[in-house]
Nucleic acid binder design. Structure first.
Lengths: 208, 208
DNA sequence: TGGTCTCTCAGCCTTTTGGCTGATACCGCA
DNA sequence: TGCGGTATCAGCCAAAAGGCTGAGAGACCA
């Protein structure tokens, strides 16, 4: 049987190097390409057609991980994408799953977890780190507090300090719509001001 | 000649694995131990007496990197500590240097930079990633941008999401004074809104 | 097919924030 | 003794944000 081919996407060379070393110990897994940005990832995925893409979400300027996942999935729905990131932010989890991610791993995951996730991904199985799974589970119980993908996207931009007008321009929606989303976000986060929402988002939601 | 012995401290196995793989390519550098927390680092440093300790600052619960650096330096001043972290927070840089760190590298540094930093550290040379160095440099040149104690106090409360009125009540000053301080803070941080100030404070200044 | 969710937009009004100018008081240091 | 830095406060005005109500379009699902 042929081995599982993997594309690594992370803007840190050290992390790619570590993942490659870890995955390299498994006879049935082969890292066939690496990329350090969303743009590079698309090119590499095109050229190498890997079975699984292991991707970080935070990747400096340019296309972010979520966007890259969406684009990858648009082009090839048989390619599984595994998120491999540092933070178990509620919003990021929701957005990544929404974008089509097959699994969500944290960087402090045990090697066996990572191997299992890669193997599971090619079989269409969804694998999550326990902390991630428990967050999703808790959200299922309190659906009222779950941000929609759009809200999460907006909150993410909010933490960059943008004004309502700028948010509207960035998302191609009117200022009125921005305010509507914000009102919903505040209610779900249990805050009353934009300042508190940003503080909550960065600290609790791990958005940075 | 004997090679340089290194202790790796990072709570992420992947990062340790990657660093080990990278450093392993150099004949004169040898990773002799690893630790995943500040506490473990102290024990490992005791047992292996490495020439250089390469350490992440953010390490989950327990002793943080800064604290670990301080303790390591207290015990053995000949042991060089290199900070190897993701964020170039002004506050973290200052605190790490203050605690006795010999160098400050970012995780997206090139391998050559890392090798050079390790070699430099044993010779008592201080090595910084360019972005880090430029931050320190800029602070020295622009003392105008350093927050006064009162301003820092206010900024800290600001990141909790308080309104001007609440800030005034908390600090026993009028709302007018709060606004004056805020205007100065915005100018020093180079932002124009409270939202951006909070984002900057939490991310860049490491206030959280 | 009807209900629910999500995303979109509008208008109106109040509160908050930010920009500006100017002022007083204290402290340390030249 | 005077100057610069810090902290305090006031008033005025414009801009931004927030609260509220209502509403249409599309997706999804029972």
């Amino acid at each position: 049987m042929s081995s599982i081919t993997v594309l690594l996407v992370d803007d840190h060379l050290v992390v790619r190097s570590g993942l490659k070393a870890l995955l390299g110990t498994q006879p049935d897994i082969e890292v066939v390409a690496e990329a350090s940005s969303g743009e590079e990832a698309l090119v590499a995925a095109e050229g190498h057609a890997p079975d699984v893409v292991v991707m970080d979400l935070a990747m400096g300027p340019g296309m972010d991980g979520i966007e890259a996942i969406r684009k990858l999935r648009e082009r090839n729905r048989r390619q599984a994408v595994l998120v491999f990131t540092t933070y178990d932010s509620d919003a990021d989890i929701v957005r990544a799953v929404d974008a089509g991610a097959m699994g969500y791993l944290l960087k402090d995951a045990a090697p066996e977890e990572i191997f299992a996730a890669v193997r599971g991904a090619v079989q269409g199985k969804s694998v999550m780190s326990p902390p991630v799974a428990s967050r999703l589970f808790q959200q299922l119980r309190n659906p009222d507090e779950v941000l929609t993908p759009r809200e999460a996207e907006l909150l993410s931009l909010l933490t960059e300090g943008l004004s309502n007008r700028e948010l509207g321009q960035r998302l191609f929606i009117s200022e009125a719509t921005v305010k509507t989303h914000l009102a919903h976000i505040y209610a779900k986060l249990g805050v009353e001001t934009r300042a508190a929402a940003i503080a909550t988002a960065i600290r609790r939601e791990g958005m940075r």
